[in-house]
Structure formats: C-alpha cells, structure tokens
C-alpha cells in the first residue's frame, strides 16, 4: 500500500465539482437558521409566555444531540409524517419523489437555528443596558431600540462566533454523505471506492475543506475589522 501522489490531484479535480452542493448545504441552513435564531433569541430574552419554554426546549435539545440524529430523524420521520397527512387529507404527496437534500436542509436549518440563537442571545446580552436606556430616553419604542441600537451592535460583536458556526456547519455538511448526498465528502467516497484509492481521495477532500475554511476565516477577519471600527479608540 503506497500513496499515489499524482492521483490526489486527479481526485481533487473530480471532487471539487461537488463543492457547490457542500456550499448549499452550508449556506442555506445558516441563512434560514439565522431568522429562526433571531426569533428564538428574542422570545427567550423577553421571556414571552409559553413560547419561551418551547424555545428553551428547542435550543437545549438540538444543541444537546448530535446533528447526525437530526438528519436521520428527519430523513426517516418526515416522509412518514407526510405520508400520514397525505393519506388523511388526500393530498396526493408522493414522498419518494421529494429529493433527499430537502430533508438534510431542514435538519441542518433546525440545528443552525438553535446554535445561532445562542450566539445572538449572548450578543444581545453583551450590549450594555445603558444603550437601551439611552434609546428610550430619546423616545424610541422597544422595537425601534432593538432594531436600530441593540441588534446592530450585537451582530457586529458576534462576527467571530458567526465565523466559527460557518466553519462548523461547512464541516457538518459532510455528514450528509451518510444519506447519499454527493457533496464533497460523498464525492470523495465515490472517487475512493471506484478507484480503490481511499487515502488519496480523502486527502483531496481534506484540502478542499481546509482551503475554504482558511478563506472564510480571512474574509471574516477583514469584515470584523470593518464592521467593529466604531469600537476602537484612538483619534483617527
């Protein structure tokens, strides 16, 4: 058993074609999860009746279980649920025609929502109470204060956390290969089994993930510098 270095490059060229699916599986759940995250964070901060218990349970459960469970439960559970509904209300949905990627996206979105809500919540809490009082003192409503004063600062401060979540979900999307998605890891697996060159294929996949991670961290670093410029002292 030796390592076929030239094959790594061949595998790389093949596997990188699957990058768009990996990016879809990363970005879509994060964007949708961001909306859930803001909603859940506000529900928890303002302790809205009943809702906040549900929100607490949701965040605790999704953060407390491996993401592979979310994918599997939704992958097996959703079609069952839809079939039942379809049967009862005669909707005529054929669950076997629903692309699997949709189930993966739903699962990852729910997971992303729970993680993002924690980040947004701690971001909001970290903005000092005085900012809220100052907003009230000039005559803003609670909504205006949240929207114009608190959230912009909370989100800017959370950029490093958002980057971590982005990288985390980029990596987590590799789990989707277990439900036969042809994203980067899935493609690597295919290249590996077809050519019986496992190590080379996974090295190539590793390089792709590594490269994207470094790129994202670099962009985030620049973005953070720009967005939190207001926080640095010193007269410019």
């Amino acid at each position: 058993m030796t390592i076929d270095i030239p094959f790594i490059w061949i595998a790389f060229k093949e596997i990188i074609k699957a990058l768009p699916i990996t990016l879809i599986l990363t970005i879509v759940p994060l964007l949708a999860g961001f909306l859930i995250g803001i909603g859940v964070a506000l529900v928890r901060i303002y302790k809205m009746k009943f809702l906040y218990r549900i929100a607490n349970g949701y965040v605790s459960f999704f953060r407390g279980t491996p993401i592979i469970m979310h994918i599997m439960v939704i992958y097996f559970g959703f079609p069952l649920l839809l079939d039942q509904l379809s049967l009862r209300f005669d909707l005529g949905i054929q669950t076997n025609k629903i692309p699997i990627i949709l189930f993966v996206l739903i699962a990852l979105t729910l997971a992303a929502g729970s993680y993002l809500s924690e980040i947004i919540r701690s971001g909001i809490i970290s903005v000092s109470n005085g900012q809220m009082e100052a907003a009230y003192s000039v005559g803003m409503t609670k909504f205006q204060a949240m929207n114009r004063i608190i959230l912009p600062q909370a989100l800017a401060q959370s950029i490093p956390n958002f980057t971590n979540i982005f990288v985390g979900f980029l990596h987590t999307s590799s789990i989707a290969f277990l439900v036969s998605q042809k994203e980067v890891t899935g493609a690597a697996n295919i290249v590996a089994s077809v050519n019986l060159k496992f190590l080379e294929a996974f090295i190539a996949a590793g390089i792709i993930y590594w490269g994207i991670t470094i790129l994202v961290e670099g962009i985030s670093f620049l973005l953070e510098k720009k967005v939190t410029a207001y926080n640095r002292g010193g007269v410019s």
Binding site: V167, H171, S174, I175, A188, F198, Y209
Partner: peptide, 16 residues
C-alpha cells in the same frame, strides 16, 4: 484540524 471535518480526519487516520 480546525479546517477539516472530523469525518474526513477519521477517514484519513483510518486509511492513512
């Protein structure tokens, strides 16, 4: 390690 999924690391160790 920060740049790659644990799954890929697992396969790399397993095969490598």
């Amino acid at each position: 390690i920060r740049g790659t999924p644990i799954l890929i690391q697992l396969f790399l160790v397993f095969y490598g």
